[in-house]
Nucleic acid binder design. Structure first.
Length: 353
DNA sequence: AAAACGGGGAA
DNA sequence: TTCCCAGTTTT
């Protein structure tokens, strides 16, 4: 592998040849103009940002004009870009700059990071591009370039990994042409070292890029570990009715899933409805009619519900007080019911009457 | 349908 | 400190 000091010159030479240098925010690179562009570019592609940026700069050419504007007016200029909290943060930061910093952008990374909506990477981009400071960025583009160059074996979302990547980013940051280097790294990630279909053959770093030596460089950065597939559970639910079309509901325990709500009696899918119901409710089953099964998804598992409509003869035994109760169909729908239970009752009405 | 994105704010 | 979210695009 080539020494660290070869990295930036290659990137800069590529930038001189292929980088973008005529974007609206690339002339008159004041901290204010770079700041606005970086905030807009955080969430949106260059081609979308350009017209927004131009209109924004026409309306708010300076930090003073932005600070003096009404929030509604600022948000109107943001309309369509999304993440509106960032426009609000930006407006707040503009007021703070004018009121507390005499309209001057801070010189230090720490100072810039104090402003709402500006974190370490955005602060570094502003200072390197507008003031030539040697401050490294680590945005999504740079993370991808570095993760591939070193074939980083861990997910960059882990704080340990991200910390290591910050060290890499700072190690490669040159002391000259800092702004061009920042822009070059963003361009490299955006145009060559893309998430899918990277153009490794055109990349100035290809010779020493560890990922490019693997069969599939797009395996880097390592993807976020997807949380384990949700388990699947199955349950039968019974719409038990008596000779007056009333429905038997069961009050659930106050803790756990659907705590305190009224629900339908349940049984395992492999159990016989007739045997189970006749034993549990000490009566005779007159008929069983299947309703449509469906899936209900919780945050942590899928529940496949197999509902049936069951007509019972008069109850012979006494049931636990308060736990079970008969309700007319319309009364039942006024209760606190879990969503799938409400769905079954509505379905029951449609399919049987 | 799910991941990515950079920072804020809740836990 | 660490975790989760916003709102849209991309895959």
């Amino acid at each position: 592998m080539q020494p660290v000091e070869y990295f930036a010159p290659r990137v800069l030479a590529w930038f001189d040849e292929h980088g973008r240098k005529n974007l609206p925010w690339q002339d008159n690179k004041t901290p204010y103009r770079v700041w606005i562009s970086e905030i807009m570019l955080q969430q949106t592609q260059v081609t979308t940002v350009i017209p927004y940026y131009q209109k924004f700069m026409t309306s708010f050419p300076t930090v003073e004009t932005l600070a003096a504007a009404e929030q509604d007016e600022v948000l109107a200029h943001w309309s369509g870009l999304g993440y509106y909290a960032r426009a609000r943060n930006m407006h707040k930061a503009a007021k703070r700059l004018v009121d507390e910093f005499d309209s001057e952008f801070p010189q230090s990374l720490e100072g810039v990071c104090e402003l709402p909506g500006i974190g370490r990477s955005t602060a570094a981009a502003i200072l390197s591009i507008s003031r030539g400071k040697q401050t490294a960025i680590l945005d999504g583009n740079v993370k991808r370039v570095l993760a591939r160059f070193h074939a980083v074996p861990n997910w960059p979302g882990e704080k340990k990994t991200e910390q290591a990547m910050w060290h890499l980013a700072e190690a490669y940051m040159p002391s000259q042409r800092c702004g061009d280097y920042t822009q070059a790294m963003m361009d490299l990630g955006a145009t060559l070292c893309t998430r899918s279909k990277p153009q490794c053959l055109l990349c100035p770093l290809e010779a020493d890029c560890q990922a490019s030596k693997t069969p599939d460089p797009t395996q880097f950065p390592i993807r976020k570990p997807k949380k384990a597939a949700k388990p699947e559970k199955q349950i039968q639910m019974l719409v038990l009715t008596d000779d007056e079309q009333r429905i038997l509901l069961e009050k659930r325990p106050s803790t756990g899933i659907w705590g305190g709500l009224w629900s339908l009696p349940e049984l395992a899918v492999e159990e016989s409805i007739v045997l189970h119901a006749e034993q549990r409710f000490v009566t005779n089953v007159l008929s069983v009619t299947p309703l449509s099964p469906f899936r209900h998804t919780f945050s942590h598992y899928h529940l496949d519900i197999v509902p049936s409509h069951v007509k019972l003869a008069a109850l012979k035994g006494v049931m636990e007080a308060n736990k079970y109760q008969w309700f007319s169909h319309s009364d039942a729908l006024t209760l606190g019911l879990p969503t799938p239970v409400r769905r079954i009752l509505e379905q029951d009405l449609n399919e049987l009457n």
